[in-house]
Amino acid sequence: MAELDEIIHQPLRLRIMAALNALPAGTGLEFVRLKKLTGATDGNLGAHIETLARAGYVTVDKAFVGKKPQTTVTLAAPGRAAFVRHVAGLQEIIAGAAVKPSDP
């Protein structure tokens, strides 16, 4: 029985992970792009990215492009694996199995 990942299960974090998972490995999304795609506010998005980074699911790179700071978020290998497991868990529920979220 597949398990749901409590860190990923939170709706905004699920959207962040889904957006990053749609990109090829090693390719990230800029913070502003991610904000637009997920419909989150600056503070909310920042907090959830931090949670995902603490879990080792994403990496955060900060750089200056010209004089503007640019934050890029990339899905890490453990994050991609966790996301795949989480989606499998959701599909199991749809198929009829009861699944309990795992502890973070």
Partner: peptide, 20 residues
């Protein structure tokens, strides 16, 4: 988590993937 919630989450994933 019930089926409805799981279906909603999968829809969310599909939607965001399409937008990316």
């Amino acid at each position: 988590i019930d089926r409805l919630e799981a279906a909603r989450a999968l829809d969310d994933i599909e939607n965001i993937t399409r937008r990316v």
